[in-house]
Simulated assay, not measured.
Amino acid sequence: MSEQHVSATGGFAYGVIGADIHVFGDGTPLYVLRRWAPAPEADSQWLRQQPSRMLHARFAVAPFTGRQDELAARHAWCADGPQRAARWLHAPGGQGKTRLAQQLATELSGQGWKVVSAVEGPGTVLPPPGSQDLTPDGAAGLLLLVDYADRWPLTTLTWLFSNALLHRPDVRARVLLLARGTDPWPALRGALASEQIDVSTQSLGPLDEPSGPAAGQGERGAMFRVARAAFAQRYAITAPADEPDLAADDFGLVLAVHMAALVAVDAAASGRRAPPDLAGLTLYLLDREHLGWVLLYERRGAGRITLPPAVMNRVVFAATLSGAQPQERGASLVDALEIGQPTP
């Protein structure tokens, strides 16, 4: 049995067993590996404060539904073929890539596979201090999940593929890379050409939904009903009976169907009418987010936020335009807004 003791004085210590840690010159990890585990049950009251939290794939509030053919194809890919393989699974945001990967991870874990997730570099929320035992001894196989792979630098991805974790001759290894596009894939595929890794790519298409008399009986309708029931349970109300028309192309996204289910429940709970189209659903949820910030601000005496909602609007808008920034650069951007609030 492998054993590792990790400690730090005045800093953070992170170690792994059965894998490598690749770091920059200052000791910052290029990426962080951790044992995959389902998210703990989210608190319903916390979720209702900002309903869009229920749409986060990590919390899996709505049970996994549909995509059975795609899930079966992932299982076949894991079970068959060469010892090492990598697949680039791509689709627009909200198409259900992360939930599909989570369901695969859940099912493979139950079949004795070791499942590990990799998160890219600086700014990563680190796992608890200590050691991560990633040794796949006795495992049926190893699945490595890489979300947002199209955001990773090519050199970091190539370092990841050189990790000892993936080079155990006695363990079947699969790397599932999730991405919104395919731009980085040809270069990575070229870098892996001499590494004896079977590479493939696959697109995750929109949800099916028949029209006419069979409307509502396809994947979208089934997914809507399951999600509506799950969200209603979080609101502690009876699920509303009405169902929207999900035949429009916009509802080919898993996220769009879940949004429709969430708004149907939230509107029923507050005595409002749910909008019929995706634009209306989006505006509805944005209004609820804004209301959430207002309530948090007005209750600031109870340890809530102290930033006025109007100021928060400006900060969020600036953050949306600028994207992720290092802390010093982010503080400079906020200072440039002249909002009269101190920045850390």
Results as ranks from 00 to 15, higher is better:
Met1Arg: 07
Glu3Thr: 12
Ala8Phe: 12
Tyr14Val: 04
Gly15Asn: 03
Ile17Trp: 05
Asp20Phe: 05
Ile21Lys: 06
His22Met: 09
Val23Thr: 15
Phe24His: 14
Gly25Trp: 08
Gly27Met: 06
Gly27Tyr: 08
Leu30Ser: 11
Tyr31Lys: 08
Pro38Tyr: 03
Pro38Gln: 02
Arg48Ser: 02
Ser52Gln: 04
Ala57His: 04
Ala57Asn: 02
Ala60Gln: 07
Val61Asn: 01
Pro63Glu: 05
Phe64Arg: 08
Thr65Asn: 05
Gln68Asn: 12
Cys78Met: 09
Cys78Gly: 04
Pro82Phe: 10
Pro82Ile: 12
Arg84Gln: 12
Arg87Asp: 11
Trp88Ile: 13
Leu89Asp: 08
His90Gln: 15
Pro92Phe: 09
Lys97Val: 10
Leu100Arg: 11
Leu100Phe: 12
Ala105Asp: 05
Thr106Arg: 14
Thr106Ala: 14
Ser109Ala: 14
Ser109Gln: 13
Gln111Trp: 09
Val116Pro: 01
Val116Phe: 04
Gly121Ala: 13
Thr124Pro: 07
Pro127His: 05
Pro129Phe: 10
Gly130Glu: 08
Ser131His: 06
Gln132Tyr: 07
Leu134Trp: 06
Asp137Arg: 14
Gly138Val: 05
Ala139Leu: 04
Gly141Pro: 07
Leu143Pro: 01
Val146Pro: 06
Val146Gly: 06
Asp147Gly: 13
Asp147Trp: 11
Asp150Asn: 10
Asp150Tyr: 09
Arg151Phe: 08
Trp152Tyr: 06
Thr155Glu: 15
Thr156Tyr: 12
Thr158His: 12
Thr158Asp: 14
Trp159Tyr: 13
Trp159Met: 14
Leu165Asp: 00
Asp170Asn: 01
Ala173Gln: 03
Arg174Thr: 13
Leu178Cys: 03
Asp183Lys: 10
Asp183Ala: 13
Trp185Asn: 03
Pro186Glu: 05
Leu188Gln: 02
Leu188Gly: 02
Gly190Trp: 00
Ala191Arg: 05
Leu192Trp: 04
Ser194Tyr: 06
Glu195Trp: 11
Gln196Leu: 07
Gln196Pro: 02
Asp198Lys: 00
Val199Ile: 09
Ser200Val: 02
Ser203Met: 07
Leu204Gln: 03
Asp208Pro: 04
Pro210Met: 05
Pro213Phe: 02
Gly218Thr: 04
Gly218Ser: 03
Gly218His: 01
Arg220Pro: 00
Arg225Asp: 05
Arg225His: 03
Phe231Lys: 01
Ala232Ser: 01
Ala232Thr: 01
Gln233Thr: 13
Gln233Cys: 06
Arg234Thr: 02
Tyr235Pro: 00
Ile237Trp: 02
Ala248Asn: 09
Ala248Gln: 13
Asp249Thr: 11
Gly252Val: 05
Leu253Lys: 09
Val254Ala: 15
Ala256Lys: 03
Ala256Cys: 08
Val263Met: 10
Ala264Pro: 06
Ala268Cys: 11
Ala274Arg: 14
Leu278Tyr: 12
Leu281Glu: 12
Thr282Ser: 11
Thr282Val: 13
Tyr284Phe: 15
Asp287Met: 07
Arg288Cys: 11
Leu291Tyr: 07
Leu296Ser: 13
Gly301Asp: 14
Gly303Leu: 02
Leu307Cys: 12
Pro308Gly: 09
Pro308Ile: 10
Pro308Tyr: 09
Val311Tyr: 06
Val311Gly: 00
Val311Ala: 12
Phe317Trp: 14
Ala319Tyr: 04
Gly323Gln: 11
Gln327Thr: 13
Gln327Glu: 15
Glu328His: 11
Gly330Gln: 09
Gly330Ala: 15
Ser332Arg: 14
Asp335Val: 07
Ala336Trp: 00
Leu337Val: 08
Gly340Gln: 03
Gly340Asp: 05
